[in-house]
Design a protein around this nucleic acid. Structure first.
Lengths: 334, 334
DNA sequence: CCAAGTGGAGCAAACGTTTGCCTTGCCTGG
DNA sequence: CCAGGCAAGGCAAACGTTTGCTCCACTTGG
């Protein structure tokens, strides 16, 4: 195990004290030009790279160039895009990202929050598991900067960046109504998720605006997984008086609904229209191309990371909360 | 910034020396039953959690419960699945994962390799950027355990787990030939990627086996991105004597090819058949459902992480290299 | 009765930084 | 000529662990 050059090696070679080396690196304290020159040369010659672990151990509070990102599941493309957004701005500022999947599992979330703190990350980005997430609140109290993404925390006064889910759903359903649909099935998200709730609210408001009645038998709620999309779509399409179009509240459930539609041999959009939340990789080349509500996932991650970096720099700055606009991409499925 | 309880706090409360606490935690050294009891109680009462940073700083060489994962792009679902596999086994062993995207960019890869070493990760999982990746070799020489995934390194004698790309392509093209196709277009990967080469080899071998001639005008090579899939498919389909089916060497390029096919108004599989590498989210519900070669991405990650953990435990164990089998999923597109 | 062995636990160094404080030499204003 | 100030840089503590050594008190075999 070849050791990396350390401060003392550099110091020895430059014939100065280690504190001098440290100070030239960090531009802190006053060091003469010539000495700096010597130190820099020694560093170059030895290929010195400061040890991040030691730095973090010592400099708790000052920056250690590590961000934590805790997400439900990286296999969900929304979070993959988001993660990429975070990563890109982190990289540009020389930060690395510690990434964890918590699978909507509270124990796992807690474990990872612990890890993050014990790793002394500079800050954490996460979608809270629910609106009163006590573990997260605890972390915040400990003084670690946190920014919420996608979902938000009821209390805590945190920076956050969300997508305007209500608006996205509203626009989508408005469009469906404009296409002439009067019986629109809803495949919604879990009632305890803020995103699910907001999208459902958009669906309802679109109906209210248009003076259309809400029928409970047309509104079903799943768990954001493919399986439930399929099941619920089957339920809806099996109704005596089935909906003429489906509004599905996330990508995976949309895929599930598509399965059901295919299984029943229904033609899109003639026999049933469909609009889903989340852009899907093949949506554009699907037959017919899928009309979807695209969430700016990458931008969410990007903004969140930017906010976090700013907060790390200045813990006192006023909190900001962003609401990014989703985009209704009109294609042929409705 | 509330501080966590430290060893000294526990020691003070249990009225023992910190070394005693450390030893009871790590089950190293001989400590009396009663003392252990006292220490454990003190730990519980203070909610003590060992500081991972300090541990890593000191115990370079002993385990610090951090794994590094460097991948081209987490937005590529293959790597997302792989990452998930890694994460799951890591979590089960109380490891956290430091994840980085290097974007096939050598500078970025180098930066992240540095970070990993400076963070003293216990080991690294990555697909080398190419077969003679000097930066990776350097890391290996430094003594950090590394396991290669997906792609491999020509030298170095490392643990690795790959997918049998040759086999996957072979089976796919065999199937296409069995379906009666005689002119099969290839949209291959970059010539300097081992995966691309292997898949191309599979394509060729299937032809040889069947006694079919290889036509260079039917073989095009892209960069594994959607754009190139579209362009190359257009080129192939625009030929005077176009191929009757396309074999596409990864998921993104398949999506691109599908775009081209749709743009030309061609019917699958009647006018053109298509088989792609990589399972895609909507492939199953596509119209028609897509025949694809599914790579066991999750398993690759899982096996790699298991291998890495074993190596961390025993640096001397003989290296193993796994070759996982892809699966040809027959659907309707060819 | 003594040497050697053993179980139990403390001391202090080391890991590689950052940083508060101190020292030194030189300059400057009075 | 001297006090005070300042620029430059050294000393050593501290961050929270792990671990090699030492130390002590017993036991035990000869």
């Amino acid at each position: 195990m070849k050791k990396n050059a350390s401060l003392v090696d550099v110091a020895r070679r430059a014939k100065v004290n280690i504190s001098t080396v440290s100070r030239t690196i960090n531009q802190t304290g006053k060091i003469g030009m010539d000495t700096q020159e010597r130190v820099l040369r020694a560093m170059r010659e030895l290929g010195y790279k400061p040890n991040r672990v030691a730095r973090r151990l010592r400099a708790r509070g000052s920056s250690s160039f590590l961000l934590g990102l805790i997400i439900p599941n990286i296999q969900n493309i929304f979070f993959a895009d988001l993660a990429r957004g975070v990563e890109d701005v982190a990289y540009r500022s020389n930060y690395a990202v510690l990434l964890c999947n918590y699978d909507e599992d509270e124990a796992k979330e807690r474990f990872y929050l612990d890890v993050m703190q014990l790793e002394s990350v500079d800050g954490i980005i996460l979608p809270p598991i629910h609106e009163e997430d006590p573990a997260v609140l605890q972390v915040v109290r400990n003084g670690t900067p946190v920014v919420c993404v996608d979902r938000s925390l009821a209390r805590g006064g945190l920076d956050k960046v969300e997508v305007d889910n209500h608006l996205g759903a509203l626009r989508a359903v408005e469009h469906m109504i404009a296409q002439g649909h009067r019986r629109i099935g809803l495949i919604g998200g879990p009632a305890d998720s803020s995103t699910g709730k907001e999208r459902t609210r958009g669906y309802k408001d679109a109906h209210l605006q248009a003076g259309l009645p809400l029928k409970t038998e047309l509104m079903r709620f799943g768990d954001f997984k493919q399986e439930s999309g399929r099941t619920l779509a089957h339920e809806l399409l099996g109704l005596a008086d089935p909906p003429s179009a489906l509004f599905v509240c996330n990508g995976l459930m949309t895929a599930g609904a598509l399965e059901a539609i295919a299984a029943r041999g229904l033609k899109i959009p003639r026999q049933v229209g469909i609009v889903g939340f989340d852009e899907l990789p093949l949506a554009e080349v699907f037959n017919p191309p899928l009309t979807v509500v695209r969430q700016p996932a990458y931008e969410v991650g990007k903004c969140a990371a930017e906010l976090l970096l700013k907060r790390i720099e200045d813990g006192q700055r006023p909190t900001t909360s962003l609401k990014l606009h989703p985009e209704l991409i009109l294609r042929k499925s409705c």
